[in-house]
Write a protein that binds this DNA or RNA. Structure first.
Lengths: 251, 251
DNA sequence: GACTTGGGTATACACCATACACAGTTTTAG
DNA sequence: CTAAAACTGTGTATGGTGTATACCCAAGTC
């Protein structure tokens, strides 16, 4: 039983701040909490690219290498940052019906990611395992519980919704980040994109793309990012709705 | 008209291999194609982390800096790699009905990403703009065209499907990559995850998560990654189906 | 033949993660 | 009470990274 996978165990201990300190040597001057919080400060100020072991250590007044007494490596530090910055959803403010709750989840998690864009830059390294992220997960799953969906479907819906939000945020970030470089705002992107595609995309080769782009479906009418998101989330929920009906009803 | 956004213009030229060489100086010994292809070779062999400007240049027998005569920087090189490695979908092998086609799209693009895992590691830097990626896009949109969905919905569905596939692949990769480190196979992950959650997640605090995990909905019965994916894609398509019915029918 | 344009090179900078050996400190075992 | 063991933080070193700058030279243009 329980062979292998020491790494995972270690990471879990870090995420849950469990794992007794061991009483032999001198008590450390740092804590995982302080390290992670400091890294988050840097990320908030300079983005994920600004986070380096050196800078974190410097800000804490220690050598770079001392961090490695607390954290296995940078990758794990990033995971810890994500967990800590995730915080916990304010489910009290959520509506009661599943649809409203899932919408709230989507909006809240999106707001979280947009407020701390570096979170969306962290390459994901596995399913959520920290307490905060589990709380988010619980919030979604419990919201779905009333729908009568089987557990497998609930998990599927959770993943679908999560991936949609993440992808949406990443797309939006990639565009808004280009603003200072290129002077193109999010609202203009539809135009630019449309014009670019229109200029290059031979209607013979890309008939549908050309038509759709020309129709302005890519936000040509200067839609807001939030509008686009709400629009997108709508039919994710529609899809879930239909699945519920299918599972409960016929077919 | 067309102010700003020189960067985008340059990138488009690179993606489409347009942009005339300028006839004044000596003809270059390299081409964008050769550079990108070489970078892809390295990525195939060593992963995205193995790709460095130095290594690409070395393999081409030139200095590092000469690459910058052809490519603005590493980030753009990565985008070019993605575009080139994307290739073009074999739509002839796709079925005729929209559902079959979208399934084929999901499977094919997933296979592509799993075959070249580094593609999923490239941080996306905007909507698809290269010819190959537009071809993929065209394949999906044209498949949706027969459903009678309005253009906006078609775009939404495209994004939904794409984000689902990408997220699924990233998740699977993060788990299979942990195998050599931890000795935990993908099939075992459900167990590990379940056991871990079960051990930490207080059923008082995470009742639904605890129940769902205990029920084995996270792949506890040693399901294959492909099974999981097919299962997931099913209800994405179900969702699309219901949207189609909604749009065409009542409500 | 002068001039302009552009390709490839060499050098240099600033930075990165982390392996390793070691000194100092604290607790525990004998 | 002493010696071993455990543990922390440091210093140093390794082997990378992307890319700015200045330069020389070949190739076309006038």
């Amino acid at each position: 039983m329980g062979t292998g996978s020491r790494d995972v165990e270690r990471m879990i201990d870090l995420l849950w701040r469990t794992g007794q300190p061991g009483t032999r040597g001198p008590r450390g001057s740092l804590t995982v909490d302080r390290i992670v919080a400091t890294a988050i400060e840097i990320a908030d100020a300079e983005g994920l690219g600004g986070v380096s072991m050196r800078k974190v250590a410097e800000r804490l007044g220690v050598t770079t290498m001392s961090l490695y007494r607390y954290v296995p490596g940078k990758e794990d530090l990033l995971d810890l940052m994500f967990e800590m910055a995730s915080g916990v959803p304010d489910t009290d403010a959520w509506p009661d019906d599943w649809r409203g709750r899932l919408t709230a989840y989507a909006l809240d998690s999106r707001a979280l990611l947009l407020g701390r864009p570096w979170m969306a830059d962290i390459p994901l390294s596995g399913p959520p395992m920290g307490p905060n992220n589990l709380t988010w997960m619980e919030a979604v799953l419990s919201s779905l519980d009333s729908t009568g969906l089987p557990d497998d479907d609930m998990v599927g819906m959770l993943m679908l919704l999560t991936s949609f939000v993440l992808h949406d945020v990443q797309q939006q970030l990639s565009m808004t980040r280009a603003v200072p470089r290129t002077g193109v705002s999010y609202e203009d992107w539809g135009h630019i994109y449309g014009r670019t595609i229109a200029a290059r995309a031979d209607p013979e080769r890309f008939p549908t793309v050309a038509r759709v782009v020309a129709s302005g479906a890519f936000g040509d009418e200067a839609s807001t990012a939030d509008e686009d998101f709400l629009y997108g989330i709508t039919f994710v929920l529609d899809g879930i709705d239909s699945l519920i009906k299918t599972r409960n009803g016929g077919a």
